[in-house]
Design a protein around this nucleic acid. Sequence first.
DNA 1: AGGTTGACCTGGACGC
DNA 2: TGCGTCCAGGTCAACC
Length: 279
Amino acid sequence: MPELPEVETVANGVDARVRGQGIVSVWTSGRPQTFKSPESEIEEVLTGARIDRVRRVGKTIVMTLGRSRGAAGEASGAEFLVHLGMTGRLLVSAAAVPVPPHTHAVLRLADGREVRFVDPRRFGRLSVKLVGEAGDGYAGPGVEPLRVSVEEFRRLFLGRKTAIKAALLNQSLLHGVGNIYADEALARAGVRPRRRAGRLTRAEYARLHGALQEVLRRAIELGGSSVSDYVDADGVRGFFQLEHRVYGRGGEPCRVCGTAIRKIVVGGRGTHFCPGCQR
DNA sequence: AGGTTGACCTGGACGC
DNA sequence: TGCGTCCAGGTCAACC
């Protein structure tokens, strides 16, 4: 599942491979729910544009576009937004490589390669945003977990009655944390997922803040977690799943204390924790 | 308004 | 073997 580390890995990989490239032509699948902007607008904005930069904001991949030809005086500058959803992939491939099933968009580049959006489950979303258009379209009110201070982090949760696990997943509080890293951060911080978000001790907020940053940084180093079908821009899997302490390990012994990892449901999501280590 | 639940999707795992 | 059922979860809409 693409969360912050996976999206960051894909965005950086695509950036390194296609920055500065012109987009010659665009194909889209016609599957309406994949496209948050009209397909005709996406094709119009992308065709003839130059890829200036690709980065991550929250769980969204933001491709900054410039005009590579003509269009002098026109409103230059737009962004192509890619949300991978559950099973989305953004791949940079040679044109000769067969187009995989469930491909919903292809950006043909000037050098002959292609940027392909592939998404079997179709939870992913593509859109474009013109510079100056109202709303950020992707950033939202939440903060970036790798930039937030301990005190800001604590204030996000004060007064909240929902479970800390559910609060970690709330994108209007924190950007980019999904089910895997919420469970892994809580495990490393020694905090049970059903604890009320506003009722942790200062020491626990501090441990959770540190643990969340640690797991996100480590996962980025390892190219993300590949638990189902996540791959980077080259189709390569990540390795952080090998360091998971709880996620996907229900019934198995805790790597620290040996207690069997339990799997429960919190906020409608499968949730894994160690009853021995987490209080 | 915060909180909770279900719908959206399809491939893969599992049970009989 | 094969078929049916269930599960995975990011996000949004609907509801409490």
